[in-house]
Design a protein around this nucleic acid. Sequence first.
DNA 1: GCAATGACTGGTA
DNA 2: TTACCAGCCATTG
Length: 103
Amino acid sequence: MDEIDDYSARVLDVVDAIPPGQVMSYGDVAEYLGAGGPRQVGHVMSHYGGAAPWWRVTHADGTPAPGHDARALAHYLAEGTPLRSAQPPVRVDMRKARWPGTS
DNA sequence: GCAATGACTGGTA
DNA sequence: TTACCAGCCATTG
């Protein structure tokens, strides 16, 4: 198994901590960690996202990762995530589904 | 060290 | 909604 970096593990830890029905944007995760940037989080998800609920991580607009929007939609419906559009372009209601973290 | 790239963000048209 | 631009951060050649 490939060993992951501390930063990647930290990103996966936050994503794994997101409760069902809630989502975070790439920028929110980076800001929550206080390190790196939205692009770094996205890169980690593309490389290690297979071991984490990547569908709970979306763009600031609420649109899921490209190429996986249909897959993410299935999870949103299964977890009861508040959606603004149940069909492409799939968009999550960030106003309610945005997870501020362990407040 | 520089240029290019990427599962990004916000603003403007 | 879509398209384009400028900014941001880390990795790679």
